[in-house]
Design a protein around this nucleic acid. Structure first.
Length: 630
DNA sequence: GCCGTTTTCGGCCCGACTGTTTTCAGTCG
């Protein structure tokens, strides 16, 4: 039972209740509950196991907490079972179609007994929908269109998949005479890992000329709508893009509004209301008077807040930090001075060792680590001990050949199914940097996987855990393990966690990276590049770090080489290897003199809110509030 | 269903657009 499973039940319950005509605020409570559960890095299973922990989550009260416990122990809750009899899940899913909300779906279900997409398509084709109250010919046609789009499985697109075309569109619009500002807003600006569509805001210039430049771009294959202030198009890659031409005077309010998130905006509006004002995309107003609207900073300032970087605008506690002037100074791309995870043609990379090192030098890096695969990945020629010894010489040669950059001899070593490492200790000792990763058997049950990971991290040769959960967006589920326990142990043992910048990995994700920081775990941001070109994907890793609220100090590969190497050295040669029975090796660096810290659960209790160590007087309003912000 | 130094009851974010309608419900972002 994962958090996502619980969230799915709540989310479906919300829609079921909505279709059933329940109190809209009750519906909202379930929807919000789903969001909160989903965003928790700590598993609700473990939260449910401890008295009162669930109720500490803002938005989770007595009732929802009880339901979570029921779902955790039985897989469901009586209300969910009862509601399914009234509103089947397949009917709930109809609300995902563009243009169909709970009201229309209710009508479809009750009048025409439509239970799924097939029923719906049939009825629409037979022109039965147009007869229904609140429907008509146009709605019927739109339903058929929505079914068509859904059948092509038009999901969200990776941020990286939209990056180039988004900037190309912006550039073309920016070139229109008189245009003063162009911004890519929405989830793109918040740097979410995937985006549903793209929003572009423009000021200045002749609106007609702006629209023409936009809909006339080469990549546009379909113009969905075109007006003076708003046009919508579909691109060759199936991405929908909306462009809005807004007045200069309200650009800040519009940018704020169209950047979102929705939840962040709602919190801002609440603050506005408390002050007797109103906030919308045209400005912050008091009656007829405009209080602020020209820039985002103006609006935030009027609300008593610091300007919030878009990556943080997810209603995860950033507003309170902005009010108190405690927003973190987020890491920047230029802060990174190294990339510590990449492959060469010695295993499954495309370029030679020398080419990769030179490419790092050209990117201004002060050091880099070459980290090919270990032998478990046999089909790509992963390294065994003998190959590692040969590699020592290859690395020495490239160091001589390419001056101006420090080259670390690393390896990405597989974590075997039992938690042992895919390389003998003697060979591990030859390496400057050891990344351990899960590649095979990542579908083990959670308890076994947790044990496996902890055992691997307890090996004293390990410096970094690479793409920790192994997830691949849209294709592979993350490995299930107790993230909280693993992070606690990593902090104690001095193992860094990677934010892998591969656009379809982004692993750790923002939520887990945030949890890592709260636990005091150091982070490295790496590309895992298999070609020179992929070295430039580092930005996507930085975006995740920013969304996690990470600063330069939280990330190891921002440090000068000497400082970095010292932190690596400290990890080496410490602590006995763990055994099968004792995966939590005592005596690791961080636990010395820290009392009985070898049991990770002790640490966890000491640092969480609601206990004597970190008692907060009142339950905070927003979900997922970062802990331990200094 | 959640929440609270102005409340344990009575609140809970806002506007545009669309298509269906004669004044507005439903959906979306």
């Amino acid at each position: 039972m994962t958090n996502a499973d619980v969230a799915r039940v709540f989310s479906r319950l919300a829609t079921m209740l909505e279709i059933d005509g329940a109190n809209p605020f009750r519906v909202r409570a379930y929807r919000e509950g789903a969001r909160i559960v989903e965003e928790q890095s700590e598993s609700v299973v473990s939260l449910a196991g401890e008295e009162g922990r669930l109720e500490e989550l803002p938005g989770i009260g007595k009732d929802l907490a009880q339901k979570i416990r029921e779902i955790v122990s039985t897989g469901t809750t009586p209300l969910y079972e009862e509601m399914q009899k009234k509103v089947p899940v397949s009917v709930v899913e109809l609300t995902e179609l563009q243009g169909l909300g709970p009201k229309r779906v209710k009508t479809l279900f009750e009048v025409l007994e439509i239970r799924n997409r097939d029923d719906l398509a049939k009825a629409a084709r037979e022109e039965k929908l147009r007869e229904l109250p609140g429907f008509g010919e146009t709605v019927e046609k739109n339903v058929l269109k929505a079914l068509d789009v859904a059948s092509r499985d038009r999901g969200r697109m990776l941020l990286a998949g939209a990056w180039d075309v988004a900037h190309a569109l912006a550039k073309q619009v920016r070139a229109v005479k008189g245009v003063t500002q162009v911004e890519l807003a929405g989830s793109f600006r918040r740097r979410r890992e995937t985006i549903g569509d793209l929003d572009i805001l423009v000021t200045g210039g002749d609106p007609e000329a702006v629209m023409q430049a936009f809909v006339g771009h080469d990549e546009v294959i379909d113009v969905l709508g075109r007006g003076d202030t708003k046009s919508s198009v579909r691109l060759r890659n199936d991405l929908q893009v909306d462009l809005r031409h807004v007045p200069e005077a309200s650009f800040g309010a519009a940018l704020l509004y169209f950047t979102g998130s929705k939840e962040h905006n709602i919190e801002l509006r609440r603050i506005a209301i408390d002050k007797g004002w109103s906030l919308n995309e045209y400005g912050l107003t008091e009656g007829e008077t405009v209080v602020a609207s020209r820039t985002e900073a103006d609006v935030y300032r009027a609300l008593g807040l610091d300007w919030v970087p878009p990556e943080l605008r997810e209603a995860r506690g950033e507003i309170e930090l902005a009010r108190e002037g405690r927003l973190p100074r987020l890491i920047e791309l230029d802060d990174l001075v190294a990339d510590l995870h990449m492959h060469t043609d010695r295993t499954d990379g495309r370029e030679s060792l020398e080419t990769m090192v030179r490419a790092c030098l050209e990117r201004g890096y002060r050091y880099c680590a070459i980290t090919d695969h270990s032998a478990a990945l046999a089909m790509i020629g992963g390294f065994d001990g003998a190959r590692v010894r040969q590699s020592v010489k290859e690395i020495e040669a490239v160091r001589r050949k390419v001056p101006g950059i420090e080259v670390l001899h690393g390896l990405e070593v597989d974590i075997l199914p039992d938690g042992t490492l895919d390389l003998d200790d003697e060979s591990l000792a030859l390496l400057d940097l050891v990344i351990v990763s899960l590649h095979a058997k990542i579908d083990q049950p959670a308890a076994a996987m947790t044990k496996r990971v902890l055992r691997a991290l307890s090996h004293p040769a390990v410096h970094v855990m690479g793409h920790p959960t192994g997830r691949q967006i849209g294709s592979r589920q993350p490995a299930e393990f107790d993230m909280d326990q693993v992070l606690g142990y990593a902090a104690e043992a001095g193992v860094a966690m990677e934010i892998n910048a591969q656009p379809n990995r982004l692993d750790l994700n923002d939520t887990n990276a945030r949890a890592a920081k709260a636990r005091g775990v150091k982070i490295v941001i790496d590309t895992d590049a298999h070609s020179v070109k992929q070295l430039d994907q580092i930005r996507y890793g930085v975006f995740v770090a920013r969304r996690a609220g990470l600063t330069k100090d939280d990330v190891l590969n921002t440090q000068p080489f000497e400082a970095f190497r010292k932190s690596m050295r400290r990890r080496n040669g410490v602590a006995p290897a763990a055994t099968e029975d004792r995966p939590f090796a005592p005596g690791t660096r961080a636990s010395r003199g820290a009392g009985n810290a070898s049991d990770p659960s002790d640490k966890r209790k000491a640092s969480r809110p609601g206990t004597a160590a970190a008692k907060s007087p009142r339950k905070p309003r927003a979900a997922g509030r970062p802990r331990d912000h200094k």
